[in-house]
């Protein structure tokens, strides 16, 4: 195993970036399509399962200190059955990385630069991610720290600048179609937050695992809070019916900002999703490479 160490804050920041970015880009439309104006309730319902997965990952890592998911799965389930389960996780990591990178490519080719072949974005992102993985986990973690510190003010700024366009009466009536659609919207959020499980590959490198459970739960609560603004903002600005027909509603929200000379802030969205996707693809590529190395 590599002789490297990162702090638990750095590890959890990697989780925050990877979940937030894909969530804002690809999942908010899915949540709104299911739950419509009650999307915020779906978000609240996902809080407990999100905290549960954060707690589970942290507890397993604390119980098997210094072991990654690949190693402790084999300790818990035995060599062969453990390997089978690791294969399932490995397939998921691979699938998640391809979906994220393809989603980013589709975002670029459909909303930003329609004439550029999608291959350009995919290869550029993967070359960068590959280089970051070769540099090691410490480099990935520190790069991500810089990225996340840049992303959060952009998100807050976007939320503040769109405030004048928001009409919160768009949320009424609440639970018009009962809990069915709300529950349908909750499941994608739970699945999105469950992807924090990838941190089980990097928790063995955390230098101090004391209070890891508490930090993980706080991280999940932060993640929920980071989705409240974009989900409610889109419905408040466009109304549920119109928001349900949009592919990248959060991007359009940024594009529509007009405060005097301050307009076309979609560049901030592009920056946000490109940097975030880089972090996510890097994290998953690192997890895949490490898992394969430990498995064979």
């Amino acid at each position: 195993m590599e002789k490297i160490s990162i702090t638990k804050i750095q590890a959890l920041m990697l989780g925050i970036t990877s979940i937030t970015v894909t969530g804002h880009l690809l999942f908010i439309p899915v949540i709104i399509v299911h739950a419509g104006r009650d999307s915020w309730i779906s978000l609240l319902l996902a809080t407990i399962p999100a905290m549960l997965i954060g707690f589970t990952v942290a507890l397993l890592s604390q119980r098997y200190q210094g072991y990654s998911m690949v190693e402790y799965s084999q300790i818990i389930l035995g060599k062969w059955f453990g390997k089978l389960v690791v294969f399932i996780f490995l397939f998921y990591f691979f699938h998640e990385a391809t979906i994220s990178i393809r989603g980013l490519g589709e975002f670029y080719t459909s909303a930003v630069t329609p004439r550029t072949p999608i291959m350009v974005f995919l290869i550029a992102m993967l070359v960068l991610a590959g280089y970051a993985v070769r540099c090691g986990l410490e480099v990935i973690a520190r790069t991500n720290q810089v990225i996340l510190v840049t992303l959060i003010p952009i998100g807050i700024l976007a939320s503040a600048l769109t405030h004048k366009d928001k009409d919160y009466r768009n949320f009424l009536p609440i639970l018009e179609d009962s809990f069915g659609p709300v529950w349908d919207g909750t499941l994608p959020i739970i699945s999105l937050y469950s992807s924090i499980f990838v941190l089980s590959m990097i928790f063995p490198f955390v230098n101090d695992t004391k209070q890891l459970k508490r930090y993980s739960i706080i991280t999940m609560i932060i993640l929920i809070m980071m989705f409240v603004g974009p989900v409610t903002g889109v419905v408040a600005i466009y109304g549920a019916e119109r928001a349900q027909g949009l592919y990248f509603p959060t991007f359009l929200t940024l594009r529509d900002i007009e405060i005097g000379a301050l307009q076309r802030l979609d560049i901030l969205g592009i920056l946000l999703w490109s940097l975030g996707s880089f972090s996510k693809v890097t994290l998953f590529l690192y997890a895949i490479v490490l898992a394969i190395a430990q498995l064979f």
């Binding site: 997965i53 990952v57 739970i190 699945s191 469950s194 992807s195």
Partner: peptide, 12 residues
């Protein structure tokens, strides 16, 4: 949603 909830929530 079902696939990832199974892999990343139920399995752990």
């Amino acid at each position: 949603p079902l696939y990832v909830t199974f892999v990343c929530l139920i399995l752990p």
